[in-house]
Simulated scan of single mutants.
Amino acid sequence: MMKYLIILLSTLIVSLQASADMIVICHPDSEVEQLSRKQVIDLYMGRVQHFPNGNKASTLDLPSDSDQRAKFYKGLTGKSLSQINAYWARLIFAGRATPPQAVQSSQEVIDTIMKDTTAIGYIRKSELVDSVRVIAHVE
């Protein structure tokens, strides 16, 4: 019985971890096939505003109080959401960059991407739909 319980708990933990994985997505007609971790960091931290091929990139962000947003930035940069917010506050105050466009939900990320070939966003891997292209994974 104890062995069965341990196996069950292990399976549950692994499946919860897998569903927490975040993916970066874009429009299926985008010329972007894949982005490296560094390229995603550069885009989401305002260091670059264009994809590696030179096309404009429009980054989408979930609400500032979203658990998904916190997991995304922690997995991507290793920084907490408060550190990310402080980073952006400095850049905005200095007029050096514009933060990603905030949307209200993962569904809004998908909807916006379907209307805009320059948009990229992140969602949980479990929320993936066929109408978008995965270009990066964030664990």
Score class of each variant (00 low, 15 high):
residue 82 S to Q: 14
residue 107 Q to H: 06
residue 1 M to S: 15
residue 85 N to G: 08
residue 73 Y to A: 05
residue 101 Q to E: 13
residue 113 I to Y: 01
residue 97 A to P: 09
residue 2 M to Y: 15
residue 105 S to D: 07
residue 2 M to R: 15
residue 66 S to V: 09
residue 9 L to P: 08
residue 69 R to A: 11
residue 139 E to G: 14
residue 50 H to T: 13
residue 10 S to W: 08
residue 41 I to F: 07
residue 58 S to E: 05
residue 60 L to H: 03
residue 59 T to A: 10
residue 45 M to N: 06
residue 11 T to E: 12
residue 26 C to D: 02
residue 125 K to F: 10
residue 9 L to K: 11
residue 87 Y to E: 06
residue 16 L to F: 15
residue 94 A to E: 10
residue 84 I to G: 04
residue 104 Q to R: 14
residue 16 L to I: 13
residue 80 S to V: 08
residue 43 L to K: 02
residue 37 R to N: 13
residue 136 A to G: 01
residue 123 I to H: 00
residue 125 K to A: 12
residue 4 Y to R: 15
residue 101 Q to I: 14
residue 94 A to Q: 11
residue 22 M to Q: 11
residue 123 I to C: 06
residue 83 Q to P: 08
residue 13 I to Y: 13
residue 89 A to V: 09
residue 99 P to F: 03
residue 57 A to C: 11
residue 22 M to A: 13
residue 113 I to A: 00
residue 51 F to A: 07
residue 87 Y to V: 01
residue 103 V to L: 04
residue 126 S to N: 10
residue 49 Q to E: 12
residue 86 A to S: 12
residue 2 M to C: 09
residue 68 Q to E: 13
residue 39 Q to E: 15
residue 56 K to C: 04
residue 32 V to W: 04
residue 103 V to C: 08
residue 106 S to G: 15
residue 8 L to P: 07
residue 130 D to W: 07
residue 3 K to Q: 15
residue 3 K to H: 13
residue 97 A to R: 07
residue 25 I to T: 01
residue 13 I to T: 14
residue 134 V to R: 09
residue 103 V to R: 01
residue 110 I to Y: 02
residue 12 L to G: 12
residue 132 V to M: 01
residue 94 A to C: 00
residue 127 E to G: 04
residue 96 R to H: 09
residue 82 S to A: 15
residue 35 L to F: 00
residue 30 S to V: 03
residue 27 H to I: 05
residue 28 P to F: 03
residue 42 D to G: 06
residue 33 E to V: 01
residue 34 Q to P: 04
residue 30 S to I: 02
residue 56 K to N: 08
residue 58 S to D: 00
residue 135 I to E: 00
residue 113 I to H: 04
residue 86 A to D: 10
residue 126 S to L: 11
residue 33 E to D: 10
residue 47 R to C: 03
residue 121 G to K: 00
residue 88 W to N: 00
residue 36 S to R: 02
residue 118 T to P: 00
residue 102 A to H: 09
residue 52 P to E: 08
residue 17 Q to I: 12
residue 89 A to D: 13
residue 48 V to C: 00
residue 88 W to D: 01
residue 99 P to M: 00
